[in-house]
Design a binder for these strands. Structure first.
Length: 886
RNA sequence: GGGCGGCUAGCUCAGUGGGAGAGCGCUACAUUGACACUGUAGAGGUCAGAAGUUCAAUCCUUCUGCCGCCCA
C-alpha cells in the first residue's frame, strides 16, 4: 500500500528542478571512480570559455552529452562526464581589457603581474557563471573532477608537450605570414578569424611593360599593398599573357620594375587573369613567393599603417632594413592608416591614368572575432608547430576506422583539414594564458626548458652565463585544449583514470571546430599517449533562428536559454524541445520555441497521468510487479507491447545519436498511446483488477526511458510511484526482457482504435454531444470478445446492442461494428463509405491487373496487395448489406 | 573556386521505392473517474521545377532554380 500524497494539479518545474538538483549533488550520483569491472563510458566535456554565459548552442551540444552519460549510467556502465573550462586566451583578454578600461586602467599600465592578479580575480568572480547555467539545465557532469586549462596540473602538461615537441624538432621559431589583429596587437589563430561579406571595389590597375609596351592590367581589392608587389603572376596556359612572362612590368608612381611570372595558382577567369603578388601581405601571394623564391618586402606595420619605405621584416624595428631605392616616391604615404592610404593611392593612380577601372564588388573580408577589425596578414617572428608529422598518424587513425564520425560525412571535413594542414602559429602577444617556456640569452640564443631553474642550468652549460629573459608571449588557447582528453585525466602522471578512461568513448562537438580542435586532440593524443583520444566523434547541428539566420546579438535574434527558455518551460522542456529538433543528417537546427512549449505541456500531461494513477481506488503494488499474465486484459496486453516497442526505439535511438527520434517516440507513446488511449481504456469496469499495477508498471518504465532527456519530471514521477532505489539517476534502464509483448492483442487493439475513430467521426457528423452516449451495435459473433466490446463502449462512449451476423477474424468482426442512427443519416454515411471503398477496390484491381507489377514486384508486396483487395471487397460487401437492411 | 546540407500543409519540421504525416496556428464542439498547460472532430499539400531509371518515384540518378553552411 502506497501513501496517497496530495499532488498539485500542475507540475511546476521552477520549484521542483532546483530542489532535485540539490539532492543529486548531495548524494554524489554524478561522481564515479574508475572501475575496470564495468565498461567505461567517458565523455570529456568540451571546455566552455569562461567569458560567456550558456547560450543555445550549448543546449544542442551539451544536452546530448548529459543524455548519453545518464543513459549509460542506467545501463550499469562506468559512466563519467568530465567537466571543465577553457581560459580562452584572447577572448578573455579582450573582456578583461574592456573591464579594466571602465576603471580607467590599462593592461600595460598595470604591468604583467598586477594584470594577471586582476585576471584571476575576474575569473573567480565571473568564471563560474556558465556552471550555474549548466546546473540549472540539469547537466550532471562529475563536478568533483572539474578542471581548468590554467590549473597547475594542466599547465604542467602544456609545458611538457611544448618542451618535448621542441626537442623533437616539431616546434620552431620563424618568420612567417600570420593573422595579425592590429587592435589586439596579437596574432590570431584561424579560428578567431571570421570572414564577413562587405561591399568594396575591384580596382583594375595597369602596370606598363619595362620595354615601353602596354604591359598588363591587374585586378585587386587591396591597391595599397601594391607598393610591396614583387611580381605579377599569370596562369601558365594563359595565351593573353604568354608573351610577357619572364619580362618586367613597372609599378606606377614608384617606378619599380617587377617580373611577370607564371603560376598555376592563378585563376585565369577571375578578374583580368593577372594578379599582383605581395608575399608579405597575402596568404596566396606568400605561397607563390615561396615557390618562386621572391623577396618579401613589408609595407604594412603592426598598427596597420603604411610603413614606407619598404623594409625587410625584422622583429626589432631598429634593425629594419630599407630595401627600396625608390623610397622617396612613396614617402607621402608613410604613416597613413591602411584605408586612408588606399584612398590616396587610388586617387594618385587615377590621376596618373593607371587606374583602368573601379567597379563595386562584394567580397569576404577577414575580421578578428575579438576586436572586429579587419585582420592584416603580415610577416612576423613567431613560434610554430610543424604539423605534417603530427597530421599523418591522425589521418591514418581516421582512414583505418579507429576514429569514426557521426554523421559520416564530417570525417571528410576532418581529413580535408589534415591533408592541407599548415604549420600552426602558437605564440600570442597577450598575457592571459600559458607563457611560453622559452628564454633568451642577451645575444638571442634560445633556451627551451620546463622551468627557469632548468633554463638557467642549460644556459650556463651552453653559454657560460645564466642571464636570461623569458619570452613574454603566451600560447594559443587551442594548444592547451588540444591536450584536454588526457590532461584532465592527470597526464603526464600514470593515473588510474588515464589507464581506464582513455580513450574516451565519445567526443561531442559542433562542426566548426572539427579541424581546429578535434584534429588537434587526435594528433596530440596519438603523439603523447600513443592512442586515439576517443572512438566516435558525434557532430551536433548548429543552431539558427526560425528563419535560418545565425543567432547573433547584433541581429537581435539570439535566444538566451537561461532567461528566455528555462523560466518559461523548465529545464526539462528546454532540453526536450531542443533535442526534438535534432536530426542526425541535418547540419542546421532552426530553433522553434514551440517545441519547448509542447514539451512543457507534455510534462504536465504525464504529471496528470501520475495523479490519475495515484488517485485510483485500488492499491498500487510495490515497485514494478505486474499482475499474473492470465489476468492481463486486451488493453493491458496492448499497452505493454507498445511500451516495449517504445523502449526498443528509444534504446536504438540513443545508441545511434538519434535524439530527435528518441524524443519523438517518447512523446508519441507518452501522450498519445498512454494518456489518450490506455488511460481512457482503463476507466472501463473490466480494467479495475489490473489497471493500477499496469499503469504503475508502464509509467515507471517509461519515465526511466525518458529520464536522460528530461531528468527532473521523470525523477519526480518515479519518486511518487512505488520504486526501488534512492533516485532514478541510478535506476536501471528498462529491461526489454522483463516486458511482455503480445503481438496478436496489439493488432486487435489497433483495430479497436481504428473502429473507435470511425465511430467518433460519425458522432461528430451527426452532432451527438460528447456527454451523450451513442448507440452502437456489434455483430453477435463479437459478443464473446469482452475486452474488445468493453473497450469500444468506453472509448467511443457507446451503448452496445447486438445484431445477428459477423463471421471471420476478430479484426473483421470489429470492423463490422456499426453505429445506429436514423436511416437518412446512415444511408448518407453508407453511400459515402461505399464510394470510398469502390475507388479503393478499383485502384487495387487496376494495380493487380498490371502484368508488370505481378511479375516484377516482390512476392510479399503482391500478396499484401491481394490481401488488401480482399479486405476492401469484404468491407464493401458488408457496408452494402448494411445499406440494404435499411 | 572546392565541398556539403536543405526545398513536403499558413509556420517549424518528420517520413517512406507500393495509398501524403505531426505539432503549432485556424474552425467547431465539449468541463466525460488525471489533465483547458485538456479532449474530440474539421479545413488545409500536383512533396521546388524538368528529364531519366523502374511494373511503380515525394523517395533513387542527372540537370536547373532558390535558401544556407564549411573550406580556400
Amino acid at each position: 500500500m502506497t501513501a496517497r500524497p496530495e499532488l498539485p494539479k500542475t507540475y511546476d518545474p521552477d520549484i521542483v528542478e532546483p530542489r532535485l538538483y540539490e539532492r543529486w549533488l548531495e548524494s554524489g550520483v554524478f561522481h564515479e571512480e574508475p572501475d575496470p569491472a564495468r565498461p567505461p563510458f567517458i565523455i570529456s566535456m568540451p571546455p566552455p570559455n569562461i567569458t560567456g554565459p550558456a547560450h543555445l548552442g550549448h543546449g544542442s551540444t551539451y544536452t546530448p552529452m548529459d543524455v548519453l552519460t545518464r543513459y549509460h549510467r542506467m545501463l550499469g556502465e562506468n559512466a563519467d562526464w568530465i567537466p571543465g573550462q577553457d581560459h580562452a586566451a584572447i577572448a578573455t583578454e579582450a573582456v578583461l581589457v574592456r573591464e579594466l578600461a571602465k576603471e580607467g586602467l590599462t593592461r600595460d599600465g598595470l604591468g604583467r603581474e598586477k594584470y594577471l592578479e586582476h585576471a584571476w580575480e575576474w575569473r573567480r568572480l565571473y568564471g563560474g557563471a556558465i556552471n550555474q547555467s549548466f546546473r540549472r539545465l540539469g547537466f550532471g557532469p562529475d563536478w568533483d573532477r572539474e578542471r581548468f586549462t590554467l590549473d597547475p596540473g594542466l599547465s604542467a602538461a602544456v609545458i611538457k608537450v611544448f618542451v618535448d615537441l621542441y626537442r623533437d624538432g616539431l616546434i620552431y621559431r620563424g618568420t612567417r605570414l600570420v593573422n595579425w589583429d592590429p587592435a589586439s596587437q596579437s596574432t590570431l589563430s584561424d579560428a578567431e578569424v571570421e570572414d564577413e561579406e562587405r561591399d568594396t571595389f575591384m580596382w583594375h590597375i595597369r602596370y606598363r611593360a619595362e620595354d615601353g609596351g602596354d604591359g598588363l592590367v591587374i585586378a585587386t581589392t587591396r591597391p595599397e599593398t601594391y607598393l610591396a608587389d614583387v611580381a605579377v603572376a599569370v596562369h601558365p596556359d594563359d595565351e593573353r599573357y604568354r608573351h610577357l612572362v619572364g619580362k618586367n612590368v613597372v609599378l606606377p608612381i614608384v617606378d619599380r620594375a617587377i617580373p611577370v611570372i607564371a603560376d598555376a595558382a592563378v585563376e585565369p577567369e577571375f578578374g583580368t587573369g593577372a594578379v599582383k603578388v605581395t608575399p608579405a601581405h597575402d596568404q596566396t601571394d606568400y605561397e607563390i613567393g615561396q615557390r618562386h623564391d621572391l623577396p618579401m618586402p613589408t609595407v604594412i606595420d603592426f598598427d596597420a599603417r603604411i610603413a614606407a619605405p619598404l623594409w625587410r621584416y625584422d622583429e626589432k624595428p631598429e634593425r629594419r632594413a630599407p630595401i627600396d631605392a625608390q623610397a622617396p616616391k612613396m614617402a607621402k604615404y608613410a604613416g597613413l592608416d591602411r584605408f586612408e592610404g588606399r584612398t590616396l593611392i587610388v586617387e594618385d593612380l587615377r590621376a596618373l591614368g593607371a587606374l583602368v577601372e573601379e567597379r563595386p564588388y562584394r567580397t569576404e573580408l577577414p575580421f578578428s572575432s575579438r576586436s572586429h577589425v579587419v585582420i592584416e596578414p603580415l610577416l612576423s617572428l613567431q613560434w610554430f608547430v610543424r604539423m605534417q608529422p603530427l597530421a599523418q598518424p591522425a589521418l591514418e587513425a581516421y582512414r583505418s576506422g579507429a576514429i569514426r564520425f557521426v554523421p559520416e560525412r564530417f570525417g571528410r571535413t576532418y581529413a580535408a583539414g589534415l591533408e592541407k594542414i599548415r604549420d600552426w602559429n602558437i605564440s600570442r602577444q597577450i598575457w592571459w594564458g600559458h607563457q611560453l617556456p622559452v628564454w633568451y640569452t642577451p645575444s638571442d640564443e634560445v633556451i627551451v626548458a620546463h622551468d627557469e631553474e632548468e633554463a638557467k642550468r642549460l644556459a650556463r652549460e651552453r653559454f657560460g652565463s645564466d642571464e636570461l629573459r623569458r619570452d613574454p608571449d603566451t600560447l594559443d588557447t587551442w594548444f592547451s585544449s588540444g591536450l584536454w582528453p588526457f590532461s584532465i585525466l592527470g597526464w603526464p602522471e600514470k593515473t588510474t583514470e588515464l589507464e581506464h578512461w582513455y580513450p574516451n568513448q565519445v567526443m561531442i562537438t559542433s562542426r566548426d571546430i572539427i579541424f581546429l580542435w578535434v584534429s588537434r586532440m587526435v594528433m596530440l593524443g596519438l603523439r603523447f599517449v600513443g592512442k586515439i583520444p576517443f572512438e566516435t566523434v558525434f557532430v551536433t547541428p548548429l543552431v539558427f533562428d526560425m528563419h535560418g539566420r545565425k543567432m547573433s546579438k547584433s541581429l537581435g535574434n539570439a535566444i538566451d536559454p537561461m532567461t528566455e527558455l528555462v523560466p518559461k518551460y523548465g529545464a526539462d522542456g528546454t532540453r526536450f524541445g531542443i533535442l526534438r529538433q535534432m536530426r542526425l543528417e541535418s547540419q542546421e537546427l532552426r530553433f522553434d520555441e514551440r517545441f519547448c512549449d509542447e514539451a512543457k505541456r507534455f510534462a504536465t500531461k504525464l504529471w496528470n497521468a501520475l495523479r490519475y494513477t495515484c488517485t485510483l481506488p485500488e492499491d498500487l503494488p510495490s515497485a514494478t510487479a505486474l499482475p499474473p499474465r492470465e489476468k492481463l486484459t486486451l488493453a493491458d496486453r496492448w499497452i505493454l507491447s507498445e511500451l516495449r516497442a517504445c523502449v526498443e526505439t528509444v534504446t536504438r535511438a540513443y545508441d545511434g545519436f538519434e535524439f530527435g527520434v528518441a524524443a519523438d517516440a517518447l512523446l508519441q507513446f507518452g501522450w498519445y498511446t498512454f494518456c489518450d488511449w490506455y488511460v481512457e481504456a482503463s476507466k472501463a469496469e473490466g480494467q479495475r483488477e489490473t489497471r493500477a499495477a499496469v499503469l504503475s508498471f508502464v509509467l515507471n518504465a517509461f519515465v526511466r526511458a525518458m529520464h536522460p532527456i528530461a531528468p527532473f519530471v521523470t525523477e519526480e514521477i518515479w519518486q511518487t510511484l512505488p520504486h526501488d532505489g534512492a533516485t532514478i539517476v541510478t535506476a536501471s534502464w528498462p529491461d526489454i526482457a522483463e516486458m511482455p509483448s503480445f503481438p496478436d492483442e496489439r493488432a486487435v487493439f489497433h483495430t479497436v482504435i481504428e473502429k473507435v475513430e470511425q465511430l467518433r467521426h460519425a458522432r461528430s457528423e451527426w452532432g451527438i454531444q460528447p456527454k451523450e452516449s451513442m448507440r452502437v451495435e456489434i455483430p453477435a459473433a463479437l459478443a464473446s470478445e469482452r475486452g474488445v466490446v468493453e473497450a469500444i463502449a468506453t472509448l467511443a462512449r457507446a451503448e452496445i446492442s447486438t445484431y445477428d451476423g459477423g463471421e471471420g477474424s476478430v479484426r473483421e468482426r470489429i470492423l463490422a461494428v456499426r453505429a445506429i442512427a436514423d436511416s437518412a443519416k446512415l444511408r448518407e454515411r453508407y453511400l459515402r463509405e461505399i464510394g470510398r471503398l469502390e475507388s479503393e477496390v478499383a485502384r487495387s484491381e487496376k494495380k493487380l491487373a498490371n502484368d508488370g507489377f505481378v511479375a516484377k514486384a516482390s512476392p510479399e508486396v503482391v500478396a499484401a496487395e491481394r490481401a488488401k483487395l480482399e479486405e476492401y471487397r469484404r468491407e464493401l460487401a458488408r457496408v452494402r448489406a448494411a445499406l440494404d437492411e435499411l
